[in-house]
Write a protein that binds this DNA or RNA. Structure first.
Lengths: 189, 189, 189, 189
DNA sequence: CATGAATGAGGCTTCATTCAT
DNA sequence: CATGAATGAAGCCTCATTCAT
């Protein structure tokens, strides 16, 4: 990996840690620089501004996630199994990436996020198409896309957040039961 | 209403508007004062600090919501109808209070909210007890409290947020269908 | 004089001193504040920004000058005497206000001055009208206004600048001779 | 032309453009480098510092001008014609070199120019000597050198600046009339 | 000679909070 | 109770200059 990516990555990684820990506005650029082991000025060589750094971090995290949702050869599974797999993929990603999870939640609920929330429409398109196919195949309730999304992935995320926060311990048994409940809800009819 | 409450309320109301619009850290105290029609100094007569003002706003909003969840004589209804009523109460509160909704989300996802997230355990206790009763009565799946909460109210909030953001139009038909799906998921067995 | 004007004036006066001494970009706001005996923040209570502070200073200096050009009951004098009086007014103002002179020159030759160089058209109008009247009365050569302006006041300023810089010693004898030369040049025919 | 001069010249030429456009302190070295098509580091191979680059540019421009003032075989003309020729040379140089004109004005009115304003005494000496000769020959009023300079060349420059700024349109007719006025003023007695 | 990433001091500006009136 | 001028610490960002490659 070229050095240049090394430093840029170090900044992004450190930013993620600190932003989650302290929040956007309690994380001075100078602190990010210090923790990343670089000078204060160099950040502006890689990112236009603090805001742009955060946006870039958001884009990168989001790209990663979207790439993983359909992982595990989901397309080869049939109806309910595929559904269950996507659901589990989502849940597991979020649980195993607590910082990314908290960052996304913080970012997406901040007022200045509104400018780029639809940047990912094109990347998430495959998932939407897959859901549409499931609906047409009669594997899923005929509800608006956003609601189906919320019922499945939104809930996976909420569950992961609670697990991260330590409010609950999601054992495999519970996970099994929960996914059963979800699927029952999403089934057509 | 005494003048004192008037001024305090004006500050809180203005703060809600501005915090939702601009975010916590892009809302100077001086702006809150100006928009509320009071002087900058007087805010510190009613609130210890900016942080305390925000916390107080959070407490007030949260108190309101919790008081309404069990409204409509929920306790007199039986199982599923009660469940449905609580769910609808929640959804409707959030949809009809967009600023409060956005404020809560922003606050609860900010790192400095962690200090008071459990302030309301005592107030929300009645709801939890009611849910426990439903579980014992066999009206609800035997899942951890937090998960049941997330599945019902969490989803109502998510739905309301999407409606607020304009991502979806939740017609009465959809609402009906959705609540049916939710309830099917929550049913025992 | 109310205190508020006192402090605002102190800032403007200190700014003039320092800007002339060090130039616009070698005069930090913090230095202006320190020398004016105020805190760094308060400057922004009176002026929007550093640029606005400088613009305001320019406006104030320019207002003063314009007010003095026609001083001394110039309007009551006839042709050449009036002309001579205006010329001397100009010269004397600039010589006796070296800081203002250097500031104006510095400002008007800086690229970011272009935004407000015509702010004073309305204030200088009386002078222009007076010159027009002189031309019609046959007391002055029939040249474009700007050239007449340059030949008289422009030269008075240049002379004053050289005197300020110490390049020359303008004795009363020289001043007399010079004004004679100027007037000869401006005479009609 | 060797490549070395090429690159040095490119830097100076670009610097002139940008300094006039943006001012000394809004023209980063990195911008000069980029626009000149060279790297940021290499500028320091040709110039000690930013200040030295600007000084060098000033010296170069000034050298050019001085060389041209006495152009056109002025020395072969007699009194008034020579005077007129020098005046026109000056005016024409400035009008046809707007960037150089603005740069000089900006530089000479900036406080950090004071360090080198007398660098050119030796180069401008021939002009001064020529003026002295004119005075002795009775072709010019017996005024201090600086004042004669200001009355003739200073005014030519002012006129050129106004023409550059678009404030006036100097037609040949006007130019003729103006030079006549100037000469009348400079005539002895 | 040439590059451009890297440094870090320093500038402008904001804003929570205080306090004299 | 009320005002709003005042403070000053702290944040974001720029940029002249250096130096490893």
């Amino acid at each position: 990996m070229p050095k240049v990516l090394d430093k840029r990555s170090a900044i992004l990684k450190t930013a993620l840690d600190l932003l989650v820990e302290n929040g956007f506005h309690n994380t001075p650029m100078s602190l990010i620089a210090r923790e990343a082991g670089v000078s204060a000025g160099i950040i502006y060589h890689y990112f236009e501004s603090k805001e742009e750094l955060i946006l870039e971090l958001y884009r990168e995290v989001k790209r990663n996630i979207i790439g993983l949702l359909l992982a595990g050869d989901v397309r080869k599974l049939n109806g309910l199994d595929a559904l269950r797999q996507v659901w589990l993929n989502t849940y597991r990603y979020y649980v195993s990436h607590p910082k990314e999870t908290l960052f996304l939640e913080q970012f997406e609920n901040s007022p200045y996020a509104r400018m780029c929330l639809h940047d990912f429409d094109s990347q998430i398109q495959p998932l939407f198409e897959w859901i549409e196919a499931q609906k047409r195949a009669g594997n899923m309730a005929d509800l608006p896309m956003e609601i189906l999304y919320e019922l499945s992935l939104g809930f996976a995320i909420s569950l992961a957040k609670q697990q991260i926060a330590g409010s609950i311990q999601v054992t495999d048994v519970v996970l099994d039961e929960v996914s059963r409940v979800i699927l029952r809800g999403l089934k057509p009819g």
